[in-house]
């Protein structure tokens, strides 16, 4: 639990922590029980949790920037879609092929690209996302272009498939929890410390004998793997993929979730994914002003909790100390 201690550094056990988790629990239980469309919202939030957790390993832990992780989600999603819907594979081996494809792609692209720094790296990753999008549009014999691939079977192994909404919700909760726990494990490991060291100061890390370029590449590949898994989960959860699913809005969405939740923290991706998914739904009744309300809420969060929602307990503790 070491890493959780650092995350909730000064805020463990205080009211804000409990309130935050309590609200999340109430929302999950309510959604589960009511069975309304919020189940779909929560399902997407959990899939995004996996994606953003991966992004967090590269951006939060390792301090790099990627605008191109939608590419890896697309590789995972399309592998699952094509291999199951067109060639009748089982979801698991299809997903593994997607995972391997994303890892290979991350290795081939990351090796030269990660030598770039700052804006150049960001631009290069943005290009990866655009290229994969174009391939998904143009390679019609496989991807069917903008028509997309429909009729993707639900997730399952052999005869056991998850067809109910609640079953899928539980499955995705487990997937998201595993993503968070594995990220916590990585952060605590030797590998995780090397990532954070590279984020802190590349020169200092290199002076200590840490091969920064290599660890940046490893972080890039690990985060690509999370993105590929998220893409596969999406394909099976919705039963449909098309290029637009993995477009730039996915990048914008995952960035918002990462920063609102708390970049570099463990719980941040989950908090961000849930809040960012639920927030627009709460404002749906505002109709044309939905985006306005949503934007305003985001600004409020980022002003009062600039390090994300995961830092709220810490802020709360500081406020208590000040007023005491």
């Amino acid at each position: 639990m070491n890493s959780f201690n650092t995350i909730w550094a000064n805020g463990r056990g205080n009211l804000a922590t409990w309130l935050l988790w309590g609200l999340a629990a109430v929302f999950v239980v309510y959604t589960f029980a009511s069975g309304g469309y919020l189940i779909a919202v929560l399902q997407f939030a959990l899939i995004y949790t996996v994606l953003v957790t991966g992004l967090n390993i590269f951006m939060g832990f390792t301090g790099q920037v990627s605008f191109g992780h939608n590419a890896f989600a697309a590789i995972g999603g399309y592998s699952s879609a094509v291999l199951t819907a067109t060639y009748g594979w089982e979801p698991l081996p299809a997903g593994l092929v997607g995972l391997a494809g994303a890892l290979l792609c991350a290795l081939v692209i990351g090796y030269p690209v990660l030598r770039l720094r700052g804006h150049y790296l960001a631009m290069a990753t943005l290009a990866i996302g655009l290229i994969v999008y174009e391939v998904a549009v143009q390679w019609q014999s496989v991807t069917q272009g903008y028509m997309g691939i429909s009729g993707i079977a639900p997730i399952g192994i052999g005869r056991f498939t998850i067809t109910s909404d609640r079953g899928l919700l539980v499955f995705l909760m487990i997937a998201a929890a595993l993503a968070l726990l594995s990220a916590a494990g990585i952060r605590r490991s030797r590998l995780g410390r090397a990532f954070v060291a590279a984020a802190g100061s590349e020169d200092a890390a290199r002076a200590l004998g840490i091969d920064v370029a290599r660890y940046k590449l490893i972080a890039f590949m690990i985060s690509a793997a999370y993105a590929a898994i998220a893409g596969s989960l999406f394909a099976h959860a919705v039963g449909f993929v098309s290029p637009e699913v993995f477009g730039l809005p996915m990048v914008v969405m995952s960035f918002t979730m990462l920063y609102v939740g708390g970049i570099g923290t463990i719980a941040g991706p989950a908090l961000g994914a849930i809040i960012i998914s639920v927030l627009p739904e709460s404002f749906r009744t505002f109709k044309d002003y939905q985006d306005l309300a949503y934007g305003a809420a985001l600004i409020v969060i980022l002003i009062y909790a600039p390090r994300g929602l995961a830092s709220l307990p810490e802020l709360w503790a500081r406020w208590r100390r000040r007023s005491a």
Partner: peptide, 15 residues
């Protein structure tokens, strides 16, 4: 900030 935020969340939930 925390009060405002959490009450905002509750309101959002109610909506």
């Amino acid at each position: 900030a925390q009060f405002r935020f959490t009450s905002g969340l509750l309101l959002a939930g109610a909506v």
